[in-house]
Write a protein that binds this DNA or RNA. Structure first.
Lengths: 194, 194, 194, 194
DNA sequence: AATGAATGAGGCTTCATTCAT
DNA sequence: CATGAATGAAGCCTCATTCAT
């Protein structure tokens, strides 16, 4: 399996750095190869083409990202705590990996639609995690049972994504993780005075 | 002022169609010129460069978009009704203009970061509108007064944007506008059982 | 029509020279552009791709080649004289255009099969000319009427082609045109003592 | 001597198949190695470079080809019968080996001129055989004694080669070997009514 | 003001060959 | 002898922009 070969990870990590530093469109294969310390041709022993590098970057990094969240949320008992944990982990992981934040929030969105559809596939497991928390919350009678669950998921993901993108675009000047409780409160309690 | 010359609008409209039909990366200047019925060189009498076309597209279309929303919300009395109207108008305008929906939700996001920063500037007035509704809601004691307003704005915009993008990516197969009340309820009342 | 534009001919002629001087595989598009005195990109205003240049080279040059032969043979009365004229013209035209001889006999044969099939299409009118001379010769009772005409055509073309190729490969050291009567005699009278 | 080692022949045969199946330009060394069941590097223990494989292919196959013809013609008594036998054997061997026919008539001609000059060297013994038959025919007073023998050889080889190439390009749809007597008659008796 | 022919920089990918094991 | 992972040079083509008319 190619993913276990040492150069595979080398190239993936180089790609993240190069994309974060140069931007998506200025990320030539030759730049990635140089940063990874391999020949240009070597890239093509591990990846079908340039797009395959990018999809793989997302798969690898997003895979770990989601795994961390799944693992952390599964330890919590109720849906409310799970949701808070999900938000915290979402923010924390991106706050801790500057390159990853830039790549996922800004650069990979410049890819063409085909690639974006593939990226969406990678994201699906994350959306499933959110779905399950919503379902659990309803079962536990913590969340209202008249909810359009798909809409709820879109609200949660849209809110987190927009929050992180704003933070990245503001050069990460404030503490993202500390926003988690407020975001959680907003999502669960809404705007209205009770 | 160039914007009043007849070919300016011709080119802008051609650009929207070309981008919607071909996708951002397959939208060459020559294609836009052809669709507009002008020579390639003529484009450069009205626009500094290709990026300027795209920014202008966004400015023109987004300007109208926001104007409609401002006008519609100003007629409503309280912040709750204003927010519902904003959501409805946001959804309706994109639902009614297929090309605009594709261009704003999918294609223009493939532009490079510089362009995206300019697009963000164009978006600012819309964010201000949201801000003002929030402020008004707090003053009218409809919304809680312990809110991080910037966060609220990100939640609102992130939720709407994610909802529309999902709808576009699902080929606009369901009725977007009819989702407005549910989205409004979610945002104002949150997930939790009261 | 592109063929009437001055740069079209310029590029075709440059291509013949470049191919003759450098060989088929070392004939980069950029070399042809340089020799033609145009930018690389200009080539693509007149030709679809590199292969299109090569097919066009063959079409243009072979078109003239065949036209000359048709015109010269049509003035002759009987099939024997027509055949002699065809052989002479075939030899003379290649003997007079060193570049053309190299390109048709040696370089274009290195092209891939798709291109060769297209080249064969261009050659068809020439084969038709040969066919008609054979037919006429039979009608005039100059040639035997028990001939497999396709085979005769292959013999004639194969003999001429092999003769020219040998001459080119021997660096055109002897007079090709003066061989015409002998070749004609061979073809019409065969090897055998009568 | 390397030629006696088992892998030498293995590689030669693999090369013929790969070239016949994929075409000259799509015949990578790695494909030949795979078909031969050896590592890429092993090829270079037996051959200097890729061109050396191709020359060797031609040497080996053409060597057998010529040997068969020499052996068969030497049993015949007069030059006429020898020539007929040569034509029959030429056709038969290619008709019986589909791969060889494609490789010699179509694919190897795409090689560059250096390689083609080497291939011509390999062909020389065949041309010598033809020369000797012509000479014998003249001595036996079967053929005219005013012949330009080099020209005759070119006619014979050109005719056979063109006939076979046409047959290969027509997907070998008709019986090549049965054409031998007609070709022989054409060459010996010519076109003219006696 | 309008044209559109011409420009030319720039990057992904292939594949013959090498060499450490 | 044999392997096969790694190398890295090399070229076709696109398309935003210009400028002579």
């Amino acid at each position: 399996m190619k993913k276990n070969k040492p150069k595979y990870k080398l190239i993936i990590d180089a790609a993240v750095e190069v994309i974060a530093e140069n931007g998506y469109h200025a990320s030539q294969v030759s730049k990635i190869a140089k940063k990874a310390g391999v020949a240009d041709g070597t890239i093509y022993l591990y990846f079908k083409n340039k797009e395959d590098i990018l999809v793989s970057v997302f798969e690898e990094k997003m895979g770990q990202f989601i795994e961390q969240i799944v693992s952390a949320t599964s330890e919590k008992e109720d849906a409310n705590k799970k949701l808070l944990t999900l938000i915290e982990m979402h923010f924390r992981q991106l706050a801790e990996d500057h390159y990853l934040a830039i790549v996922t929030q800004l650069e990979l969105r410049q890819s063409n639609i085909d690639l974006r559809l593939q990226i969406n596939n990678v994201l699906k497991p994350y959306l499933v995690v959110i779905d399950e928390i919503i379902k659990e919350g309803i079962e536990q009678k913590l969340f209202r049972d008249d909810l359009n669950r798909k809409l709820v998921r879109q609200m949660i993901f849209g809110t987190l994504d927009e929050t992180v993108t704003n933070w990245v675009m503001k050069d990460e000047k404030y503490d993202l993780v500390s926003l988690a409780p407020s975001v959680h409160a907003l999502i669960t309690n809404g705007l209205s005075v009770k």
